[in-house]
Each structure stands twice: as C-alpha cells, then as structure tokens.
C-alpha cells in the first residue's frame, strides 16, 4: 500500500465536490481542503449522483411493477414489490390515523430509497472508488447516506412537510399557539390581566422549548441515519486496511463478512426507522388535540 493508513481513510471519506474555488474558477476540488474552501455553494457530485441514481432505480423497479400490476396472479417482481408496499401500508395505517394519501407513498419512497442508499455500504469499499480512479475520477464516495448533506437534505424535506401540514391542519394561529402556549400554560380563571401577563411571560420560554423540540426532529432524523451509516462505512474501511498480509488478510475477510452480515440488519433497520419516524412526525403535525 503506497499511501499511509491515514491517507487511505481520508481519501475514502472525501466527496467528489464541484464548486467555485476561492480564486473564482469553477471545478472539482482536488482535496478535502479545497472542498472546504468552496463553502456552501458546492455540490457533492458523487453523493448526489448515487442518490439520484438509486432513487431512479427505485422508481424504475416499482414503476415496472406498477405498469405490470394486475389484480390477477402476481409475478415474482410484483410479489416482491407488493410485499414491501403491503408492509409499508400496514405500518403507516397503524401509526398515521389521519386522512392523507401522501404519507404512505412517501414512507415507501423513503424506506426503499434509504435502503438502497444504505445497501451501497455492502459493496466492498474499494471496488467503485478504484474503478472511478481508473476512469480518472479522484474521489468517489458511493454510499450517499454517509454524507450528512444527503440525510439532512431528506430530513429538511420532512421538516418542510411537517411545517406545511402543521399550518394546513391547524392554521397559522393554531401552529403558533402550539409553539407559544406549550408546554407551560397560563392557569385558567383569575383576572384576565394577570392571565394575559402570564401568557406573555411564558411565551418566549415555550417558544424556546417547543422550537428545540421542533428542530430536534429533523436534525436527529438526519444525523441518526448519517451516524449509523458513517460508522458502518468507517468500520468497513478499517477492515479494508487489513488486506496487507495473508494471515491478517484472511482474518480481515472473515471480519468483513461478519460485519456485512450485521450491517444488513442495520441498513434495513435504519431505513425503516427513517420512514417510520417521518410518518410519526407527520402524524404529530396532523394531531389537533392539545395533549402531546
């Protein structure tokens, strides 16, 4: 191995970033420092491309199944797809009691898409980056869900939907009331002046608490997925470092196999958690009861 372990790990964790260099020219970053210098207005081409490709793969597979869907005897693909659809439908209908026909398809999209993105983690860590290097691409991070931009991007979309449905269901007034008048409520009764004063005093405290609650949802949603997959990817990279000698290499292969087996569980679970939490958050956004 020509490069040091540190360089190897760092190389594997660097995105292929396209953006504007500080000197004003546009191009790919040649290293992590240049990528950092590009600031916000740059794009991780590898993450984005893999994410979109996998999302498209989801649409194609399920689209083919939908196109061939019959109420008669289902074929193999349709069976598999319907199993997932049915599973998601059951899960959503048990969590989400309101009427909204966007939620279930969204949960399906999230579940399958995140699962596919996570699944890229099981591809041996060097295969695609090395192939990319042969084709002249320096950096290639193939697991989109190890990029916080990707996971937080989805969490942001969920957050926007939460806000949208909160306002749609409860109205702006109801939504603001929820933010300002919980969890500390001014006691009912007494003189209206005291009560009004109390409400005004409690409002900022409530806003801080509820604001944290509100913001913690998407942040934890995105970071949970990112953290799990990043750690898993890191362990694969560390195991890949063992492929030096024969003895330790064989041990490394066994470890990689074992970790991959375990990781199958993690990637499915994380995809499911992301989908279910999305549904839970949106269900909360639809809840008009005062008790939450």
């Amino acid at each position: 191995m020509a490069e040091s372990s540190g360089d190897y790990i760092k190389h594997h964790l660097t995105n292929l970033t396209y953006g504007q260099h500080p000197d004003g020219t546009w191009g790919f970053a040649e290293n992590a420092e240049q990528a950092a210098a590009m600031g916000f207005w740059s794009i991780n081409v590898d993450s984005m491309a893999w994410a979109v490709a996998l999302g498209a793969l989801f649409c194609v597979i399920f689209g083919i199944a939908a196109r061939r869907a019959t109420a008669g005897v289902p074929g193999g693909l349709q069976n598999a797809v319907e199993m997932i659809v049915d599973f998601i439908d059951d899960t959503v209908s048990s969590i989400f009691q309101h009427r909204n026909d966007l939620i279930a398809p969204m949960a399906l999209t999230i579940f399958v898409w995140v699962f596919l993105m996570n699944l890229m983690d099981l591809v041996p860590v060097d295969w695609i980056p090395e192939a990319a290097k042969v084709m002249g691409v320096e950096f290639m991070k193939v697991v989109p869900s190890t990029d916080p931009n990707i996971t937080l991007g989805m969490a942001l979309a969920v957050f926007i939907l939460v806000i949208f449905y909160s306002i749609k269901v409860k109205g702006i007034g109801g939504f603001l009331k929820e933010l300002l008048c919980h969890p500390f409520e001014a006691p009912k009764g007494g003189s209206p002046v005291v009560r009004g004063l109390l409400i005004v005093i409690l409002a900022p405290i409530n806003l801080i608490l509820e604001g944290v609650t509100l913001l913690a949802k998407p942040v934890s949603l995105g970071l949970r997925l990112f953290g799990n997959l990043y750690a898993g990817e890191m362990i694969f990279i560390l195991i890949a470092l063992m492929y030096g000698g024969i003895v330790i290499g064989v041990f490394g292969a066994a470890l990689q196999w074992a970790w991959a087996m375990f990781h199958v569980l993690i990637i499915t679970l994380q995809a499911f958690i992301f989908a279910v939490l999305t549904v839970v958050y949106l269900a909360q956004a639809h809840d008009t009861e005062e008790d939450h």
Binding site: N15, T17, G19, A35, A36, M38, G39, F40, W41, S42, I43, N44, S47, M48, A51, V52, G55, F58, C59, F62, G63, L102, P105, M106, L108, T109, I110, W113, P144, D147, P148, N149, I150, L152, G153, M154, L156, A157, I160
Partner: peptide
C-alpha cells in the same frame, strides 16, 4: 461540509416522493 448538496437532495426527495 454542509453544501448545496443538501438542497439538491431535498429537491430529489421531492421529485421521487411525488413520482411514487
């Protein structure tokens, strides 16, 4: 780093969810 990828993914998410 947090970059415009975030926005890109949000848009991609919207597109795929809408398609589904």
């Amino acid at each position: 780093n947090i970059t415009a990828t975030l926005i890109g993914q949000t848009l991609a998410f919207a597109v795929f969810v809408w398609t589904c």
